[in-house]
Nucleic acid binder design. Structure first.
Lengths: 214, 214
DNA sequence: CGGAAATTCTAACGCTCATTCGAAAATTAT
DNA sequence: ATAATTTTCGAATGAGCGTTAGAATTTCCG
């Protein structure tokens, strides 16, 4: 699927890579076609042989980013054994989401960080892709709750928003090398599922907490 | 402190309000002085009687936003009785942070949402204010951990980043009327401190989970 | 009311940007 | 190699931007 055929396709990809990286760093409006062209080793006018406009370039970057994280999360679930625990399912999705966001992909992080500040019409056209990812997460969490792995007195859509917030916001502070993605995934799952408090708010889990102390 | 004196001060505030709102909606680079002026009922050129440049206007909006959330969180702690539980302290800080972000203040949400995409030099000049807020949260969490209210095997700076991520990301999805801020604060504290997983739902023991942590 | 000061308007400037287009160069096919 | 085609270049265009400065207006104060 990702096999480049012609030389033209390679150049297209080079331009898209440059655009994704620059959009992520500077934002959409502040990025000039000159910067993108320079990062792709060509002149600004030459971009128009491959793309019709700056907006068109943006839309393609957004789509690629959304597809990558969608695919990563979906594959993380397909890769699990059928009898995997819901904790493992959530943990795998968190890991896949974070890895795609922070390690592999300027497209994904560009999508996340510039989306709020692009022209409205492009936002609207891109919404279905966002909804697809939301639907994946909704399904993972709903299944876990129905199976009894998540408390049934919580608002799952709010949990989902807060969880995705913790994940997505990492593009604002993550520095490669300083933090490990598996450690992030562990902390997220620990907070989400077990909590990091030791106080006994409702008397539910005193024994577990003692067992967890190191 | 917030008392307006002259008519000029009122106009200044009107301009700042308009700028904060527009920056938040469209981003910094995509916002024109014409839009700000129109939203403040004047002509673009007139803005220069009150502000030296677009950058100067931005810096003032950023500072006001940072101050507001800093003050809100600090006051939320001062308002608590000296013997308040650490759960209550965290809950109060979460509530104050969210309320300022979502309810009271375009300045705060503008600060959060455009910061990554403003000129580098302005970012750098504004960093101390960001650090002040981070320091407040660090103190709240560290005290809770030292008092034994938080597990001592978690990386508090990572917890802080993830928690602030869940809070800050809400500017991207929160719609007034559709969600209640206290309910959000409740869910955050529940997840953070207790977790929403059910006890041994997947048949695994606490020690097993511990083994995965590193 | 009348003059001074404060504030806003208006029109213009220079600059940068996205975009266009015909010529040049590079690549491919014959 | 030569012709045909694809790709890139480079200069030009026009629109819109932040910004400026003087004229026009409003506000303030005696």
């Amino acid at each position: 699927m990702a096999i480049e055929r012609s030389k033209s396709d390679l150049t297209r990809t080079r331009i898209l890579d440059a655009a994704a990286r620059t959009f992520r760093q500077k934002g959409y409006a502040a990025t000039t076609l000159n910067e993108i062209a320079r990062a792709a080793d060509m002149q600004a006018g030459s971009l128009y042989y491959h793309f019709g406009s700056k907006d068109e370039l943006l839309e393609e970057v957004l789509d690629i980013g959304a597809n990558k994280v969608n695919d990563a999360v979906r594959e993380s679930q397909e890769r699990l054994p059928p009898d995997a625990s819901h904790r493992d399912r959530i943990r795998a999705a968190v890991d896949a989401h974070l890895t795609m966001l922070l390690k592999h992909c300027d497209y994904t992080s560009a999508n996340i960080s510039i989306f709020a500040q692009i022209p409205e019409e492009i936002q609207r056209r891109h919404l279905p892709k966002r909804d697809a990812l939301a639907a994946q997460w909704r399904r993972i969490l709903t299944r876990a709750q129905k199976a009894g792995a998540l408390r049934d007195d919580v608002d799952l859509s709010m949990v989902r928003m807060l969880l995705l917030g913790a994940l997505n916001w990492s593009v604002e502070w993550y520095k490669p090398g300083k933090t490990s993605i598996p450690a992030m995934a562990d902390h997220i799952c620990l907070m989400l599922l077990d909590g990091i408090g030791t106080e006994n708010a409702d008397g539910r889990r005193a024994e577990d907490r003692e067992a967890e102390m190191v």
